[in-house]
């Protein structure tokens, strides 16, 4: 007889869901209005709060699924960085990449796709914020450039959906050069008069803003997205004062003349379709 040790094995509990009703995750607190929203209502509404219109962040796959009515093809989804600088910080860039690839199921911070929007076959690149902050290194640069080239070759409109902290530090100056590389490719698209619309989502900052995100025939953004060159913290440190309310938000950029429109997510497909009708008849 043992008082402190169990002789018999404990009764194995059944699968978790048999015993408990999972309430967790059923409700979401909206960051915009602080109200509690039923998750399925939120998802039905493209992850826009049905009460206040706050736009929750979306991953790249969800964005594409939402944007295209029909199934779409993907391109260049097997490109992976070779860590050109052998960069090591708190952990090595290689292991950071491997971890990110595991969690996101992507090889880098982007999905390149082609599908139908309205009457148009459109090349769409969607950046993945969860992958090292949506940062742009040689893979993101190459995938976008190839999408631009595909648009050029097939005379198909291009959409780039940005969500990024900027250039990827772990690839050093090579990341910076992707700004020039993509911008040069967009020069060719511009010369060929093939439509390009840039959609900025929360957040779009740094080198991404200072290159392709600001080079659309139309530059549009989701409501309430943070968009800027320098991040708010960097600016606060430079000028040593608090930034005004709403600074660097979509509506601020619209007011200062740097956006063509702020387009709610639920109206995006219609907006793009109309714009491409205008540009590409």
């Amino acid at each position: 007889m043992s008082w402190f040790k169990r002789d018999k094995p404990a009764i194995a509990p059944n699968a978790e869901q048999d015993r408990t009703v999972r309430a967790e995750g059923l409700w979401v607190k909206c960051e915009g209005c602080r109200q509690v929203v039923f998750r399925s209502d939120l998802e039905k509404n493209s992850n826009v709060c049905p009460k206040c219109g706050f736009h929750f962040r979306l991953d790249s796959k969800a964005r594409l699924d939402l944007l295209f009515e029909e199934p779409y093809e993907t391109f260049d989804q097997s490109l992976a960085s070779t860590d050109p600088l052998s960069f090591v910080d708190s952990k090595s860039y290689r292991s950071r990449l491997a971890g990110m690839q595991q969690t996101t199921g992507l090889t880098d911070a982007i999905i390149s796709a082609r599908g139908r929007i309205g009457r148009h076959m459109v090349n769409v690149c969607a950046m993945e914020l969860r992958f090292i902050g949506g940062s742009m290194g040689s893979v993101v640069g190459e995938v976008i450039t190839r999408a631009v080239e595909r648009s050029l070759a097939n005379r198909q409109p291009l959409v780039i959906i940005s969500a990024s902290g900027g250039a990827r530090m772990q690839e050093g100056l090579i990341s910076l050069m992707q700004l020039a590389k993509i911008s040069a490719a967009l020069m060719k698209l511009d010369t060929a008069a093939i439509p390009y619309i840039s959609l900025m989502t929360d957040p779009t900052t740094g080198g991404v803003t200072a290159s392709f995100a600001m080079l659309g025939d139309l530059n549009i953004a989701e409501p309430g997205a943070l968009i800027g060159f320098a991040g708010p913290r960097v600016i606060e440190q430079t000028i040593r004062q608090k930034l005004p309310e709403g600074f660097q938000k979509s509506e601020f950029l619209l007011q200062h003349g740097f956006l063509d429109a702020v387009v709610p997510r639920t109206q995006l497909r219609e907006y793009l379709s109309k714009a491409f009708d205008f540009m590409a008849g």
């Binding site: 050109p84 190459e142 090579i174 050069m177 590389k181 040069a184």
Partner: peptide
């Protein structure tokens, strides 16, 4: 500039 950053592999 097109050639810059050819540091990727096909997986």
């Amino acid at each position: 500039f097109r050639r810059m950053g050819s540091f990727f592999s096909e997986t």
